[in-house]
């Protein structure tokens, strides 16, 4: 029941809609900029490889959008939605009333986590849909050329894009668990948000330093771009499987830690 209450509350917050508008605007901006520039975006070493081929199919718009958003705006959304869990309710003064209903502390935290993951997944799917529509309107939804040279049918491209969106969401779910955990440590929701997004950024920086390669496989963000492997023929699943396991491990570890902290915590706010 609490899970549904969380979703209802989110629907009545302008913040939720602002996120949807901002994120949904990105694929549109992307398409507009592509139309305005006759040349494809020059692709540097860091840019995801589809940039070079971006004009050939409308399916590239959602993929490019997801790759761009995954660096910062999606982690920011996941941080905002998850770091509110305890800290946000504490600063509103609603936490004590929820707990006195009584709502069990573990149930409260799990419902909060569930709703944060649901909302961030909904946002990922939303930008994917906007991307497909925007790209489709401008470039049409024709077959999609891939990195391995083969061309995917529109249907084959579509399911891969949906799987990519869900895979990206799993990475966000790992980050959201960190957000919920941090949220149990403070009564400041903005503080918890900053710490959580900070974790995602630092993780990406460390991941780019080759001298620290020994820790790379354990970084939350290390496998985030592995969804690119979906667009090889045949699909290479190994990196994505490692990524899913890692995201799940983060989710479990931080939720267990969060519940442990929260169940011993005096609620003074």
């Amino acid at each position: 029941m609490l899970f549904r209450v969380e979703l209802i509350k989110a629907l009545f917050r302008w913040r939720t809609w602002a996120l949807a508008v901002v994120l949904g605007g990105i694929p549109i901006i992307l398409v507009i900029s592509l139309v305005l520039s006759s040349q494809p975006t020059p692709s540097g070493d860091d840019a995801p490889p589809f940039y070079a081929l971006i004009l050939r199919s409308g399916f590239f718009t959602p993929l490019a959008t997801l790759a761009v958003l995954q660096v910062f705006l999606l982690p920011l959304s996941a941080s905002l939605l998850s770091a509110d869990a305890v800290a946000g309710e504490a600063s509103l003064g609603t936490l004590r009333y929820l707990l006195a209903r009584p709502v069990g502390r573990r149930r409260l935290l799990l419902s909060k986590y569930g709703s944060a993951v649901t909302l961030v997944t909904a946002l990922v799917l939303w930008v994917t849909v906007v991307g497909i529509v925007a790209g489709g309107l401008v470039y049409g939804l024709g077959p999609l050329p891939t990195l391995s040279g083969a061309t995917l049918s529109p249907l084959g491209a579509l399911w891969r894009i949906v799987v990519a969106a869900l895979y990206i969401s799993s990475g966000m779910a790992g980050l959201a668990a960190i957000g919920v955990f941090v949220s149990t440590l403070t009564v400041s929701a903005p503080g918890a948000t900053v710490v959580t997004i900070g974790v995602a950024i630092v993780s990406q920086i460390v991941d780019s330093l080759s001298a620290l390669r020994i820790v790379h496989p354990y970084l939350l963000t290390h496998y985030w771009l592995a969804f690119v492997d979906l667009f090889r023929v045949p699909v290479s699943w190994s990196a994505m499987t490692d990524g899913l396991v890692l995201h799940l491990a983060y989710a479990v570890v931080f939720m267990v830690a969060g519940v442990g902290v929260f169940q011993r915590k005096d609620v003074l706010a």
């Binding site: 509103l92 003064g93 609603t94």
Partner: peptide, 21 residues
Amino acid sequence: PGFWPYLSGKRNLECYARAGG
């Protein structure tokens, strides 16, 4: 008292009632 400022008084009570299960 602690309430969600962006919800109406009525909906606040409803959220609490439902959260309590």
